[in-house]
Simulated scan of single mutants.
Amino acid sequence: MAHPATRVVLVHGAYADGSSWSEVIPLLTEAGLDAVAVQHPLTTLDAGVQATQRALARSSETTVLVAHSYAGMIITQAGLAPNVSALVYVAARAPDAGEDYTALAQQYAAPPASAGLIWQDGYGRLSDEAFLTDFANGVEPSRARTLLAAQGPIADTLFASSTTVAAWRSRPSWYVVSAQDRTINPDLERFMAARMEATTSEVDAGHLGLVSHHREVAAVIIEAAGHRN
C-alpha cells in the first residue's frame, strides 16, 4: 500500500454498541491510527449506513472501514466512499449486491444464538442465556456480563433490507473468521471470505473475537491499514 491509512472507522453489530470495540481501540491508537467507533441505532440498514457515512465524512484521511457481525451489511454498502482504502470483516456478514442474506445463511446449519432471540413491541434481544452462552462464548465472564448490560435491542426492520452494492468487489478486503462462532455459522463465514477473495485468518474464538482475541483482530486491522504491527 503506497499510502497507509491513518484512520479506522469501526462499526458494531447487532445486540451491541460501539463499546464492543473497547479492547481493540487502544491497540490501534498505539499503532498510530485514529480510531472512531460508530454508534448506529440498530433500526434499519439505511440508518446504519448514514451513521457510518457521517463518520467517514468527518475526515478526508485514508480510512480502513471495519465491521463486526451485522455491520458487515453496513460497510458493504458504505465502503465505496472515496477515502476508504480497505475493508475488514470480523465474523461479519458479507453479502453480494442485492443478495438475500437470510436465504444465504439458511444454506448452513442454524447457529444456536438464533433460538434465543426474544421479540417484544417490535424490538428483539437475546435472552441472557443465549447472550452469555452463544453470543459471548469465550469472553471472560465479567466482561460478558458488562456487554450483556449494554445489549442493544434491534428493531424488527433491521434485517429487512439488502445491500445494493458490494464494496468488497472493488476494495481490498480482510476477513477474520471465528472458529467457535455460535451466532454466525463459521462455515458461512469461510464461504463469504473465500468468495470475496479476502485476506483471511481464523481465531479460536466465539462471535466476539474482537473482545476475546482483540490483539489478533487489531493486528489484522493494522495490516489492512498498511502499517507494520
Rank of each mutant, 00 (worst) to 15 (best):
R7S: 01
R7P: 03
L10S: 01
V11W: 03
A14M: 00
A14F: 05
A16L: 12
D17A: 02
S20L: 08
W21A: 04
W21V: 04
E23N: 15
T29F: 03
T29Q: 13
E30R: 15
A31W: 09
G32E: 04
V36K: 12
A37Y: 01
V38N: 07
P41I: 06
L42A: 05
L42E: 05
D46F: 06
D46C: 04
V49Q: 06
Q50S: 14
A51N: 06
T52H: 01
R54W: 09
A55L: 03
A55T: 08
S59D: 04
E61N: 15
L65F: 03
A67H: 06
A67F: 03
Y70A: 07
M73S: 12
M73T: 04
I74K: 02
I74E: 00
I75D: 03
G79P: 00
G79D: 10
G79L: 05
G79E: 03
L80M: 13
L80Q: 14
A81V: 05
N83T: 01
V84L: 05
A86D: 09
L87P: 00
L87V: 00
Y89W: 10
A91V: 04
A91S: 15
A91F: 02
A92Y: 02
A92R: 01
A92W: 00
R93E: 13
R93L: 14
R93K: 10
P95R: 12
P95M: 00
D96S: 14
A97L: 01
E99Y: 07
E99A: 11
E99V: 09
A103E: 14
A103W: 08
A105I: 08
Q107N: 14
Q107K: 13
A110Q: 13
A113H: 01
S114P: 08
A115F: 12
L117A: 12
I118P: 00
W119L: 12
W119P: 04
Q120R: 15
D121R: 13
G124M: 02
R125L: 05
R125A: 13
L132C: 12
T133L: 10
F135I: 02
N137E: 06
V139K: 09
E140S: 13
P141H: 08
P141Y: 05
S142C: 13
T146G: 04
I154F: 10
T157L: 02
L158S: 03
S161R: 11
A167S: 10
A167L: 08
S170A: 11
P172N: 14
S173I: 01
V176Y: 08
A179I: 00
T183R: 12
N185V: 05
D187T: 11
D187G: 02
E189T: 09
A193D: 01
R195D: 15
R195Q: 14
M196S: 14
A198N: 08
T199H: 15
G209C: 09
L210K: 00
L210Y: 10
H213E: 11
H213S: 15
V217L: 09
A218E: 09
A219L: 15
V220Q: 02
I221M: 11
I221L: 08
A225V: 04
G226Q: 01
